[in-house]
């Protein structure tokens, strides 16, 4: 049993954090804070990047907690998913993933496609409009998390859906800041 090779691989890929497992609000507070401190105090000492990475991390983990279909049997506020934070070519990226019901895929996919096609000004207008709108039924948050992520992203949103079984798909989203 030796995790050294695995760690070497992560280091070589520039991965700062790789977590697959149960996610809770406490994890956002704890792991999120550690990541923030690490980036703030890193060789670049980049406070702005630290806050950006942290904010995307918060939105992504919140999405996993809310929307992953893999939930803990006892604690309904605990859901399973995966999150990776890394740095490539000078840009931080945050990738999150969780299992969803395939029937939810189409709505989510067309929403994300809509966001990916918007420029920064359009995203800003849309963000403001949605912020003032009433909370919609299926959305446990404000429904503006993805817009927030798209606005902080230096590249168009990248996302993917992979079929898992008859009724489930795995959703992955990547934000590069």
């Amino acid at each position: 049993m030796n995790l050294y090779d695995y760690k070497q691989e992560l280091d070589q890929e520039g991965i700062l954090l790789s977590f697959s497992g149960p996610m809770t609000h406490e994890m956002i507070e704890g792991v999120g804070r550690a990541i923030r401190v690490k980036i703030e105090g890193g060789e670049d000492g980049d406070k702005k990047a630290a806050l950006k990475v942290f904010s995307i991390f918060v939105e992504q983990v919140e999405n996993v907690i809310r929307y992953s279909v893999e939930k803990d049997h006892v604690d309904s506020n605990m859901s399973f998913g995966i999150i990776v934070i890394g740095k490539k070519d000078g840009h931080f990226y945050i990738i999150g993933g969780n299992k969803i019901e395939t029937e939810k895929q189409q709505t989510l996919e067309s929403y994300l496609e809509q966001l990916a096609a918007m420029n920064k000004d359009e995203l800003k207008v849309f963000y403001k409009k949605r912020r003032r709108a009433e909370r919609s039924g299926d959305s446990k948050g404000a429904g503006i998390g993805f817009i927030e992520m798209a606005r902080k992203s230096s590249q168009p949103l990248e996302f993917n859906f992979q079929k898992v079984d008859d009724i489930h798909s795995f959703f992955t989203i990547k934000i590069t800041i």
Binding site: L51, F54, S55, V58, E59, E62, R131, R132, R135, G141, A142, I144, G145, I147, E148
Partner: peptide, 11 residues
């Protein structure tokens, strides 16, 4: 710092 759902609460 505030997250997106807090942003709505602030609005």
């Amino acid at each position: 710092y505030f997250n997106s759902s807090s942003s709505k609460a602030l609005m």
